[in-house]
Design a protein around this nucleic acid. Structure first.
Lengths: 178, 178
DNA sequence: TTGAACTTTCAAAAATTATTGAAAGTTTAT
DNA sequence: ATAAACTTTCAATAATTTTTGAAAGTTCAA
């Protein structure tokens, strides 16, 4: 009965679509090494029409307070969720970056910093390997160099993306690649 | 004693560099949702000067036969490792794609197929949500559309990358982005 | 067809990662 | 300074993922 009333008021479609959106985002996150709760919180905020409190998030996603707190903190470390102070409220509220372009840029920036740059550093270290003339050493040097080059290129590309004004990606690049 | 002899013959530098290369690749893989053994097997093959047997791989990486077998199969599913038949040998030997550009393309292709395309599919499904005039529904529709657009762009970009001739990425694109 | 040489499969064990919940910590209004 | 209203931390637990190893499966030479 309660369910029927709810369905009548809000429309089944919305609730269903919302859940699908959140769970899809969640499993996508898992695939990319981001944990489910973190991805789902971001998804929830992404389609919310106003900032949400920790209580709201816990209730919607059925997760514990500790889990919500830790994952919100991580999202803030990634720079894609921020606290939104609401006048007259003691609680903290949260919002995510709503502009997809900006979101993509922020994620690109963090992934470069956390993943690509450390790899580049190791590849650079490996370039100091002693050339002893063996085939094995030659191959290691050759492949290390090749990877180093690709990693640098990828990083440069990401940085071009990161430093562009808003709609660069969809406009210019899309045009370029025809 | 045995160790010293080994060090003398092969040079400490090589062994150290090789281990560093493999373990770095392994942890990078983990970060990207690829399991450690799978990434390490690929790394090992990437710097090997000849095809390796399952025994070789098991011994070098200290992993079990089952583990080696399953991960080699996955790497073959990804299309980045292939069996190399060696005349006169009963055993199977394995090699990985040695050209980094080609490797990147193959990975891009698989990631598009496994990750981006399913997301695009869900976003498309969600676009059939019933527009009931509420703010929440409007926001969900808006954000779904925005993501859909970005996902399509990313996928198109990847496909341009995938279908280019060999050195497109480093040559043309690098030039373009200055 | 047999059996030796290999590979694959898969249930169980180990390792890793995520989640909980309650105690400790913090902030703010009075 | 106190206490209510919150948030954070973290040890314990749960869930998930990876790894093992041995049995089952396959292939091939004789």
């Amino acid at each position: 009965m309660k369910v029927q009333k709810y369905l009548y008021l809000c429309g089944m479609e919305y609730q269903e679509a919302k859940e699908k959106f959140i769970s899809t985002w969640g499993s996508l996150g898992t695939l990319w090494g981001i944990n489910k709760a973190m991805a789902q919180i971001q998804a929830l905020l992404f389609i919310a029409t106003k900032p949400l409190s920790m209580e709201d998030i816990m209730e919607e996603l059925k997760i514990s307070r500790g889990n919500a707190s830790m994952n919100l903190r991580q999202l803030m470390d990634w720079g894609i969720v921020t606290k939104a102070l609401i006048a007259g409220e003691r609680k903290e509220f949260f919002t995510t970056e709503k502009d997809v372009q900006e979101l993509v840029r922020q994620i690109a920036k963090e992934r470069s910093r956390r993943e690509i740059q450390p790899v580049i550093k190791v590849l650079k270290e490996l370039s100091s390997i002693k050339e002893d003339g063996t085939t094995n050493t030659k191959e290691l040097i050759k492949q290390t160099k090749a990877l180093h080059e690709v990693a640098e290129t990828a990083d440069t590309m990401l940085h071009k993306l990161i430093n562009r004004e808003q709609h660069w990606m969809t406009k210019s690049l899309f045009k370029f690649i025809k």
